[in-house]
Design a protein around this nucleic acid. Sequence first.
DNA 1: CTGAAAGCGCTTACAG
DNA 2: CTGAAAGCGCTTACAG
Lengths: 359, 359
Amino acid sequence: MKEVSKPDSQQKSLSGVKEIAKRANVSIATVDRVIHNRSGVSEKTKARINKIIEELDYLPNLMASRLALGKVTRLAAIIPQVTEESEFWHAPLNGLKRAEKEIRQFGVRIDPMLFDPSSRSSFSAVAKAAMESDYDGVILAPSFVEESKHVLEKCQQRGIPFVFLDSNIPDQSNLTYIGPPYFQSGYVAANLISRLLRNSRKLLVVNIATESDSFNYLQIENGFRKYFRENSLPSEITRIDIRDTEYESVARYLTYVFMFHAEIEAVFVTNSQVSTVASFLYNSQRRHVSVIGYDYTPENIRYLKNGTIDFLICHQAEDQGYRAAMSLYQHLVLGQQVPKEHFMPIDIITRENHEYYRN
Amino acid sequence: MKEVSKPDSQQKSLSGVKEIAKRANVSIATVDRVIHNRSGVSEKTKARINKIIEELDYLPNLMASRLALGKVTRLAAIIPQVTEESEFWHAPLNGLKRAEKEIRQFGVRIDPMLFDPSSRSSFSAVAKAAMESDYDGVILAPSFVEESKHVLEKCQQRGIPFVFLDSNIPDQSNLTYIGPPYFQSGYVAANLISRLLRNSRKLLVVNIATESDSFNYLQIENGFRKYFRENSLPSEITRIDIRDTEYESVARYLTYVFMFHAEIEAVFVTNSQVSTVASFLYNSQRRHVSVIGYDYTPENIRYLKNGTIDFLICHQAEDQGYRAAMSLYQHLVLGQQVPKEHFMPIDIITRENHEYYRN
DNA sequence: CTGAAAGCGCTTACAG
DNA sequence: CTGAAAGCGCTTACAG
């Protein structure tokens, strides 16, 4: 297998393409063609070159490649804007920015395109704008399912890869899903809440959301119920839906519920709106009621710190944004394989450990 | 402020150094000298160039720079080898490998240099070897304090930056510390265990370790005790030290302890040896005793799954290795500022959420 | 104190 | 189907 090296003026092993070119007795242009599977190379030389690439275990120098290409890869991130009720999205946006900082040296740019999460039409408008601007990759929080499918069809047609962030639409040809394992997350919530039940074993599940379609909370609730079923825990679960995030509305609903179910010991809020519920309980002197909810938002942390909220479950929101961007980078720039789903861990945050949590 | 652009043949804005050179009426070599603060430039032109750099908000192209330099940056990672009793180190090693994969395209290489964590002399030998090989940066798990100080003195003399991994030595001129906030971690452990106490409120703290100096467990215990003090919880804390990690020895000790303290309700093991204790409790049919300990090792997960261990506290061991390497990369290659300490989050792992944990 | 020129490894018109 | 040459932005001897 050892080859006899021709007496060369320079013993120094040439680098990548040059070395390959020399060994194959072709020019580096031809080598380049083979490496990138471009047409215009005879099968014979192609095979020869590929064999040498194998032998040399050649990996192209990414820096040199990007430098020569001088190409800019543009990613659109279609996610909710940060408002009082969507504080959650602060973190993924930061993650996207962190990713951009890291990969902009490779010519990757990320444009956040923010929509109003309580408005279907706003989503459509933003998505349309994104499609018109011809991005190389798309990151999408598919809050509105039908509207999302529209966008994604276009992406598919044009061969633009897209990734789902924080919420999934099954059976789409997305590059990957970056987000929580919602079902199991609800299961964890149930386990935590069951640790807090004492006497009546009555608990309340609250879903607070406006317009979005996102069925995350359904999965959460399924996981939640599964836990109680599996462990055959004698508990009474009341469940309410509130289609309004305003404090006044929520308080009205809850007052009503507690009127009829005064013995409720614990409340599970299926999303980041938990601070509104905590606020109600705090204001109405119901300090004995345990509370579990989602996400590391300033308001939630406030009520975690003052003891109203017992546990927050978090899914590393910042990292979700970061990884969504990095997945596209891996795919588009590095040409690497990306796993079809990347589930975030289910983190349990308490008053004691929240200080060191990196959301 | 607007400058009148001279009528140029090419309107195209030149890139980085060239553009600066043109504006300053010097060659790019001079610009390069200024950028890197190398000597041999008159104060006058230096000032002129610096001003232009400011104006242009110039950031050097890292890819081009590394490509031209062709330099390899070598990092030594002096950490414990992975044995049955130091399974923990599997994860940081993986993190180091992940980091290398990411930054080897910038010419960074990482050599793991593994020592036997139960042997002071092994540590010394490995550290010595590392010093002889003249690395550009050092990652160190300072299991043995005095011996570590030796190494670090040499690093300082030669201006080689070093970072502490998983355990800290205060007052050293380390670039950064990557590891858990041990004190607060003990505090969290106390909170968790207090949730598990029922009647006797007697609990046992066990430290199992062989030769290493690492005083992590002292901090952990301090945090642990602080919690009980602060919350004035009426509890009886027994504490034992076992200087041997073998199952037989541990079992002997524990048998003895439980003889005199049969009412112990919960055990807190201050490190990853918790599976040994869990094994003892499991084997001796003490399934009612709650157990808390550290780290996501296969053995620990086994006992978490079968319900013997109630909580594992983990500090993202894989990420610790990754971040240690990335800190040196940021410092040596990117010339960026690195925070003096990077504390890992205190993660609470249960039977319900362990499956999605990324250690 | 300063500059012209070659080179890092890859890519891309362009010419054949 | 193939190659020579220029260029990406930065660095580095070398010469002055």
